[in-house]
Computed example of a mutant assay.
Amino acid sequence: MAARKLRPYFQAHTIKVLTDQPLRQVLHRSDTSGRLVKWAVELSKFDIQYLPRPAIKAQVLVDFIAECTIPQQSITSEAVEIPVVEEITTPGGLVGVEAATPVRTESATVPAEQDVSSEALWEEYVDGSSSKSSCGDGLILTGPENFILDYALRFGFLASNNEAEYEALNAGMNLAVQTRTQRLRAYCDSQLVANQIQGLYEAGDERMIKYLAKVRLLASKFKCFEVIRIPRTENTKADVLSKLAPSGYTALGSICMEFLKKSSIDNKAVEIM
């Protein structure tokens, strides 16, 4: 369609097509038939180069900020107390006023839906993958209005399965803190991690103690936070992301990708306001 609508440009210039799909292989297959043959013949008239589409990291950040940033007026607005007054007629016929209990009302500039979204329940599914050669995490953060964020983390260090689970949980909690949500529920398939956070198991290892302390610090930033253990069969998407992250791909379509040089407990603590 683009070649037909913009034929003069296609005839005068070299056209570079940035795509994550194998269009060149599809159009040049020897067993191509039907409409693909017609399209291949039609496009062969032009100088078209098919190049891999690079990751648009800046666009991912812009989309995330646009969807998750609270409007400025809702942050600066404050509740105002307006006293309710009643008229009182004295025996002499004079009219006075008596102040009743003040009624709190919100400034008119605060959208009503902001309170609803901040109090809405957000959910995250996390999973970690660990092997002798590489480690990674996968997490899915879901919120109101069908908001879904797929996130993959690739490690520059080796970690155990439990450490990878904690890293995924910490990353998801940090993302939720940045969206200013007040209620978060996390799902993981690690019995050890879930029971340590719930207080059923004690963390005996030094690194597990540090990870548990970091989770509790992040949990204090929510009004409501809980961790629920689920079977691995109900956590397949996060499991796929955790195994895809260490593979070395840098462009995963709509999936956000991050590389961690150090573990979260080895980095200096950063206070998130």
Rank of each mutant, 00 (worst) to 15 (best):
R4Y: 10
L6S: 00
F10R: 03
L18D: 02
Q25M: 09
Q25C: 09
R29S: 15
D31R: 09
T32N: 08
K38V: 11
V41Y: 00
E42A: 15
L43S: 07
D47Q: 14
I48F: 00
Q49H: 06
L51G: 02
P54F: 14
A55Y: 06
L61I: 09
V62E: 08
F64V: 12
F64W: 03
I75R: 13
I82Q: 10
P83N: 10
P83H: 07
G92L: 08
T101G: 09
T101I: 02
P102T: 12
E113G: 00
Q114R: 02
S118F: 01
A120H: 02
E123W: 00
V126S: 12
V126K: 00
S129R: 12
S130W: 04
S130M: 06
S133V: 03
S133L: 11
C135Q: 04
G136D: 08
D137E: 11
F147I: 06
D150Q: 14
L153M: 06
F157I: 05
F157Q: 05
N162E: 05
E163V: 10
G172F: 10
Q178K: 11
Q182D: 07
R183E: 09
R185M: 14
A186T: 13
Q191A: 13
D205A: 08
M208N: 06
K210E: 15
F222T: 04
E226R: 03
E234W: 05
K237H: 09
K237G: 00
V240W: 14
S242G: 06
P246C: 07
P246G: 07
T250G: 14
A251I: 01
I255S: 04
K261M: 03
S264A: 15
S264M: 08
S264G: 11
I265N: 06
D266G: 03
